[in-house]
């Protein structure tokens, strides 16, 4: 359950989430090139719609998150993209509270940025290999969900819940989502790498952050 509703988390967790989200968005917006804004808003729309796709799992139901894909495609810009999408989901659908928005953005955008970092590192080393970058994207798709699940469990744990049962429940129920997202992300990024790899080249890239500017 990636969207935490209002009234579940404790004050300090909310504050940390808001601070991390604010800092991440400010940093991302500062580095965002205007030409990439359309790409960011498209990925934001994809992310927005993805959470409405539901997979019934046992007693509960889980939905796609696609933060791995967002991170691989956007890097740091995943922060504003996810913020906008989550805000709209909260306002329009009541997915996640408005007060906990900061925490929800943090638990999804931080894994996204980490996935972006991982993908870029792999691409830098094995960029010319026909398979490895797409495979890495698939791994990122699953990793994004896994890290988000753990981050949600941690947020709940810091608010008084037991970490282990919450983490086990969330991770296990998200296993199908991880598989679906791994396949989806690998397919989407694989396609992009074949037809137009330039989209994924970023002068504001994570790895080259210091070198380029």
């Amino acid at each position: 359950m990636a969207h935490i509703p209002d009234g579940v988390l404790s004050g300090p967790v909310l504050a940390v989430g808001a601070a991390v989200t604010l800092a991440g968005c400010a940093y991302a917006l500062k580095r965002l090139e205007p030409e990439r804004i359309p790409q960011v808003s498209i990925l934001s729309a994809v992310f927005f719609v993805a959470s409405l796709v539901h997979v019934p799992v046992g007693p509960s139901s889980v939905h796609l998150i696609l933060n791995g894909l967002t991170g691989v495609a956007l890097g740091w810009a995943a922060f504003p993209a996810i913020l906008v999408a989550l805000l709209l989901q909260a306002v329009l659908f009541g997915f996640g509270g408005v007060v906990v928005l900061g925490v929800n953005v943090m638990t999804m955008a931080v894994p996204a940025v980490l996935c972006g970092l991982l993908f870029e590192t792999v691409r830098r080393r094995w960029g010319h290999h026909p398979r490895i970058p797409a495979l890495a994207a698939g791994v990122c798709g699953a990793l994004g969900v896994l890290l988000t699940a753990l981050a949600v469990a941690l947020s709940l744990a810091f608010s008084g819940a037991e970490f282990r049962p919450a983490a086990t429940l969330i991770v296990v129920s998200h296993l199908p989502v991880m598989i679906v997202e791994a396949v989806f992300t690998a397919a989407a990024i694989g396609l992009v790498l074949r037809v137009k790899p330039g989209i994924l080249d970023r002068s504001d890239g994570l790895v080259a952050a210091g070198a380029v500017k």
């Binding site: 969207h3 359309p38 790409q39 498209i42 990925l43 729309a45 994809v46 719609v49 993805a50 959470s51 409405l52 796709v53 539901h54 997979v55 019934p56 139901s61 889980v62 939905h63 796609l64 696609l66 894909l69 659908f93 997915f95 989806f184 989407a188 396609l191 992009v192 037809v195 137009k196 989209i199």
Partner: peptide
Amino acid sequence: RRRFGSILILAALALTLGTVPALAH
């Protein structure tokens, strides 16, 4: 870039349509 985006949106929408009526969470 537009094509990349529209492919993604179409895929996401297709997935969404495929899973109605399990609409929301």
